[in-house]
Nucleic acid binder design. Structure first.
Lengths: 230, 230
DNA sequence: CGAGAATTTGACTGCCTTCAATTCTGGTGG
DNA sequence: CCACCAGAATTGAAGGCAGTCAAATTCTCG
């Protein structure tokens, strides 16, 4: 195992980057992505910043619990969300020395940070390098799928596709507790909160889903949703 | 250098995949991405298929001349273009064993194919592995930028951003010969050809660009374009 | 030079946004 | 335990931007 993975992050990292609380323990994670000594466990309150757009890349991250979003703020003040990361997902890869997106906790979240400074610091260990590479390619696929989702699709198609994605990534079969707000969903899909809300209400009227509460979605007619996602 | 790079592709590859003409010579490319013996040079006529959605991944590719597009066909018959690749660009990376997108020559194009079967076949050579990894991360950045371009932006912003991108990637300062049709541009930006055409005409009226011919764009006011891209 | 494709332009429609008001929800303090 | 409050979410009405349909024009290539 490459030594670079086991190095602790600078203590200054936590205070600079808005981590509300950093656990000193060096967690030994599930090690699917970075087997071995693991990285540093960090905990973030909802809406706190994990890293900012423009920050130097010092780590990549793995979600342990909670949900994380990566996003970009545009000059007109609008926010665009690039991705949501659920437990087990890896984020924070960058081509350059600095992050192009910022990462924030959607809900209270714990992550593990693995020291990493770009493609040049590819670990010597073949197996670790392969897994990192595979994770980066997985991210690439996800970004491509997101592009396909945003291009020339109706609000119905976007929201249906989003719901299907969330349900497939959730541990339950036909029910999800959405960690993100309507605004988050809107910024992810390139819509407004009103359109997202109206579309969800429409799906509810058509009895494709049930909304016991605003954040809880139960799927009643999966086929209808899939059909709407087209 | 890893042996996997120098292996010639199966001869069956060319006929199966729609290559109209394959040059037998084993080119020795600029070797920025895959230094060493290089891969197999292939030549494609305009609109011919390089690989199809669903094809097994056997190589990644590097554009030598011409332009290549990667795209996906949706169930409603619409096409979505994920990226345009110009000379020097690398494409064809995939997370899985099969391609999720298809690749086609926009104009007559030559590419070099490097044998590659997914993250597991990461070359043993450290330097080659790093360069591959860097190329994949670069692709990730590009895909993220494309998502940002598609989400909640006006037709003006999309077309302006597209023009700026093309001009910055072109060898000349303020002039581009667009290899792609209006339909290609529309499918890349999530617009219709009519809207793309109207927007370009508008930029011309505002004297931000000149259109000596449909495919030739000369930039008159770069600042105005940048401002429009916001 | 002529035929067909690509592009441009025009008129109208429709979906999503915008603006505005109301309802719902979760958390706090009496 | 309940009333209250602020933020989140929903709903409504009207307008705008891009899509659709249609026609004219330009370009390309045999």
């Amino acid at each position: 195992m490459s030594a670079s993975f086991s190095l602790a992050l600078d203590q200054s990292f936590d205070t600079r980057r808005g981590a509300r609380q950093a656990w000193a323990e060096t967690a030994r994670g599930p090690a699917e992505v970075a087997p071995g000594p693991g990285g540093q466990a960090l905990h973030f309150l909802a809406d706190s910043e994990i890293f900012a757009d423009g920050d130097e890349c010092v780590s990549f991250y793995r979600v342990v619990s909670g949900v994380v979003r990566t996003c970009k703020f545009r000059s007109d003040g609008r926010r665009q969300i690039d991705a949501f990361y659920l437990p087990g997902d890896v984020f924070g890869f960058e081509a350059g020395a600095r992050h192009a997106l910022c990462a924030e906790a959607v809900s209270e979240a714990s992550v593990i940070a693995y020291r990493w400074r770009g493609a040049d610091s590819l670990p010597v260990d073949d197996r670790a390098a392969q897994q990192l590479f595979a994770a980066a390619l997985h991210e690439l696929r996800r970004a491509q799928d997101h592009s396909l989702l945003l291009g020339r699709r109706s609000a119905f198609q976007k929201v249906a596709a989003f719901l299907i994605d969330m349900i497939e990534r959730s541990p339950y079969e036909d029910s999800v507790e959405l960690a993100m707000s309507r605004q988050d969903i809107a910024d992810y899909l390139g819509l407004t909160i009103e359109t997202v809300s109206r579309t969800l209400s429409q799906f509810e009227r058509e009895e494709a889903i049930a909304l016991p509460s605003a954040r809880r979605v139960r799927v009643l007619d999966r086929a209808a949703l899939r059909h709407a996602a087209a």
